[in-house]
Design a protein around this nucleic acid. Structure first.
Length: 267
DNA sequence: AGGTTGACCTGGACGC
DNA sequence: TGCGTCCAGGTCAACC
């Protein structure tokens, strides 16, 4: 599922291949749409616009348009943004196709329809979002969890605190920091939080290097899979031996999300 | 007000 | 084979 490293990989790929291109026309599917803005509004903003740049904010892909405007894509769980040739088959669950002046197409595909598309004025979209996990300082990071009764895992997933960490990278960061996911955030010592801060940065950076984790439907803008799933130490390894101590990995549900941890290595 | 839960979705895995 | 059931999880509304 697309979290920060996957979205970063896709945004970089899109920026490389479509920056400078112009959207000539837009087709939007007729089924109940994963849209936040109306189809009309999206088409109005996209058609005729030049793509300045594609970047990532939290788990969102932001397409900077000229003369003005932003097209924001959230991939949900199963969303894909693909650059394709017009003759390649249209995948089932394709919700939007943008024809580019270079002759290629930018396609948004999302089987589960948890994704969301919207258009905004420049720089207006992300007021309520938390900080970027790879940009906040250690002090800011530690402050986020002060006095919170919620499990540390839930706090990591809260996009208003930090935007970009999802279920995979929360579990992997907590394992590397040696902290159990159910620990209340306020009871995690500052020493452990410092460890968690470093672990989160290492995990996210390694995952970006590996092109993300391909579980479920994730592929990058060119349709290529990532490799970080091969480096997961706890995520989806329920019952398998911990790589460090051989204790079977446990799965528990926290805030409705499955959470994986080693009962021996994580306290 | 902060924390928690369920609904939204489809496809794939599994049991009988 | 086919049917039913469960599970995956990001986000948001509704609830406590």
């Amino acid at each position: 599922m697309p979290e920060l490293p996957e979205v970063e990989t896709i945004a970089r790929g899109l920026d490389k291949s479509v920056a400078g291109d112009v959207i000539e026309s837009v087709w939007i599917g007729s089924k109940p749409q994963p849209l936040k803005s109306s189809a009309k509004e999206i088409a109005r903003v996209l058609e005729g616009a030049r793509i300045n740049r594609v970047k990532r904010v939290g788990k969102h892909i932001v397409v900077d348009l000229a003369p003005s405007g932003e097209w924001i894509v959230h991939l949900g769980m199963t969303g894909q943004m693909l650059v394709a040739t017009p003759e390649s088959d249209l995948a089932k669950h394709t919700h939007l196709v943008a024809k580019l002046s270079s002759g290629r197409e930018l396609r948004f595909i999302d089987p589960r329809r948890f994704g969301r598309l919207s258009v905004h004025k420049p720089e207006s979209a992300f007021a309520a979002q938390g900080g970027e996990p790879l940009e906040v300082s250690e002090e800011e990071f530690i402050k986020l969890f002060k006095g919170r009764k919620t499990p540390i895992k839930s706090a990591l997933l809260n996009q208003k605190l930090l935007s970009g960490v999802g279920n995979i990278y929360a579990d992997e960061s907590l394992f590397r920091a040696g902290v159990r996911p159910r620990r209340r955030a306020s009871t995690v010592t500052s020493e452990q939080l410092r460890k968690l801060y470093k672990a989160m940065r290492v995990v996210l950076e390694e995952a970006i290097k590996a092109g993300g984790s391909s579980v479920s439907d994730y592929v990058d803008a060119d349709g290529e899979e990532g490799f970080f799933q091969l480096q997961h130490r706890v995520y989806m390894r329920t019952g398998e031996p911990c790589f460090t101590c051989k204790t079977p990995i446990k799965r528990v549900v926290i805030a409705g999300r499955s959470s994986h941890y080693c009962p021996h290595c994580q306290k």
